[in-house]
Design a binder for these strands. Structure first.
Lengths: 359, 359
DNA sequence: CTGAAAGCGCTTACAG
DNA sequence: CTGAAAGCGCTTACAG
């Protein structure tokens, strides 16, 4: 196991194997045109020398970086509070490491800076493709990435689906990128129904930023379910996903003359903060107020009362997205993927409406 | 603003400026030997052409990747629950992006796989240096990175400080790397004292994995403070930092005949889970049980009761670590940095011991 | 102060 | 099936 002083290069392999370095390259990238025995010999030598192709040399030749990018435009505080991204990233990693790809991560605190980061990533050819999360309405990144010629995979299908795309594909359609879709509307609708079944008739929705498509989409699914039951769906508050915003939204809702008996939040941290506010006001959960979160983070099961939430699966979302991006680059296109839809996990924070003295 | 079809290369700049590409390179990297006016002309042309040096070409020439690495060996679930890393990463990013560096992130679920990742990062020359977090006792990464010749910065100083290093620097000392230190012992000691002052005499400590140096270090600081007050410091439970582990540790502690009146946890999620268990058992916090966390995550302020915690500052930790790694690479060495020590943030989850009927 | 040339370690037509 | 050569876009001694 003598550690070699200098890293072996393709020239070393060629010399030892007694062939040209071009042939080594062919053998290693198993391209046709190398006899079986020559290839075997070359591979044996490569293994022997512990040869690993230089990424930067390959990159320069092939104009490929062998890395994918993820740009997250969220405030650091929110990033830390919301377990979605760490899990998503872990899923991405799980696939990339086995494929010899690296993940280049960028965190920007505001969406203004975002474009600069993508441009730099593209100009420096740092990454071969990117993951697009937190899709927004009329998301400027779609056009930007197209302009940059940067392949991408979106989490969720942009609002105007590719199916409705203009017949002329040369026109900039709504989404030029394949999507890995996890239907959250079903879970949201089931959650709304769950609350209706418990007798709630005054239900509030504390959503994420409206400019994000998933917030709007979930909001609509939620409202539809309430509407279908003849229950008002006007109690909607928009937040930035922070626990702080969740807390203050809860405060406002509970101060209402006609306060809700149930509140559904866009993520678990906000719901947990909501429970905190309820307790502070002397309300019992779920006797006086039912509360539900979203994403079903680890903590949901352990807070008191344990939190009803909607389980998405960020880890496998990450895995699928990574595999899709690999496929997109290898084959030039990739079909949309549908993951298991989100589903409700009922715990102790939601319960039947307590019968009150009729107003 | 006509978008150029082909990216400008150094040759384009040289041609337009009427000089050799070598001179362009000198001017851009402002090295001596270029007259002021020539440099200005070259820079003007570069700007005009929107020229950006190719990272892979530079990398190949300089054997530098212009990227730093962070390998996290934690289970995805824990990663998601613990806000430390997202904030730390955000801090790192804040510095790197302005310096034209990228962050390559790797998440591995177990420490066995860790070595492979570092070796690959080094063999592929993916990164110029790495951040070492969650330092362990006799951490194998120290020797590994030395063997690989990979520069690094550690979060916290390895247990055996560099000051105590053997006189012969050629021998593998305890830590060959500079450290950015955030003293957490002070905050932990202050927290212990806070509980003592409230009258607690039976105080438990639910720590992170003992193989991690910060867990041991904090544990010692905690025990020292209790010992100095003549209070037993034997109630220590080790966990893996998950909320699940925090919950079960709490369960065990509260089932004790001589159950603690206060429990301190190694991170906030565990403390929040602890509050959950206490409530489930019909205990009131802090009347029947005081609870405190660590790291002071956003949620701490919004749970009920709001959580006393120890505030470290992952964001500036990340910033400092990034700056230190840049300096280490630029100048070949860097001095250790001491950040503001951690301090206690007292909230509603800790309170005076309730007088009980004496047993 | 400036230019011409070699080299970093690969890939890829182009010949044979 | 194999070799020799050019090229990717930089940096860096080496000359002048």
């Amino acid at each position: 196991m003598a550690t070699m002083k200098r890293k072996a290069t393709i020239n070393d392999v060629a010399r030892v194997a007694g062939v040209s370095k071009g042939l080594v390259s062919f053998a290693l990238n198993d391209r046709p045109g190398v006899s079986a025995e020559t290839r075997d010999r070359i591979l044996a030598v490569a293994r022997e020398l512990d040869y690993r192709p230089s990424v930067s040399a390959r990159s320069l030749s092939t104009r490929t970086s062998y890395a994918f990018g993820l740009v997250i435009a969220r405030d650091p505080e929110i990033l830390g509070a919301d377990p979605f991204f760490p899990s998503f990233i872990a899923g991405v990693e799980r696939v990339l490491t086995t494929e010899g790809r690296a993940l280049v991560l960028s965190v920007v605190s505001d969406e203004q800076h975002e474009a600069t980061v993508y441009r730099t990533l593209a100009a420096d050819a740092r990454v071969d493709g990117v993951f697009l999360t937190d899709l927004r309405h009329d998301d400027p990144r779609l056009a930007l990435l197209q302009e940059l010629g940067m392949p991408a995979v979106t989490l969720g299908r942009p609002a105007t689906s590719r199916a409705q795309e203009s017949a002329d594909p040369s026109l900039t359609g709504p989404s030029p990128f394949p999507a890995v879709v996890l239907d959250d509307t079903e879970g949201v609708a089931a959650l709304a129904q769950h609350l209706l079944d418990l007798g709630h008739r005054r239900i509030a929705h504390v959503t994420g930023p409206r400019r994000m498509q998933h917030a709007t989409r979930r909001g609509e699914a939620f409202a539809r379910t309430l509407d279908a039951a003849g229950v008002a769906s006007d109690l909607v508050l928009e937040t930035d996903f922070t626990a702080a915003a969740g807390a203050s939204a809860t405060d406002r809702l509970l101060a209402l003359a006609d306060a809700p008996t149930a509140i559904v939040y866009g993520n678990d941290p906000m719901a947990i903060a909501g429970i905190g506010i309820a307790h502070e006001r002397g309300l019992r959960v779920p006797d006086d107020l039912s509360v539900a979160g979203f994403d079903d983070s680890e903590l949901a099961r352990y807070v008191y009362p344990s939190l009803t939430s909607v389980r998405t699966d960020p880890l496998s979302w990450g895995e699928s997205a990574a595999r899709m991006l690999l496929r997109l680059l290898a084959e030039g296109h990739a079909d949309d993927i549908e993951l298991e839809p989100a589903h409700v996990v009922v715990r102790a924070s939601t319960g039947p409406v307590r019968t009150r003295a009729t107003a």
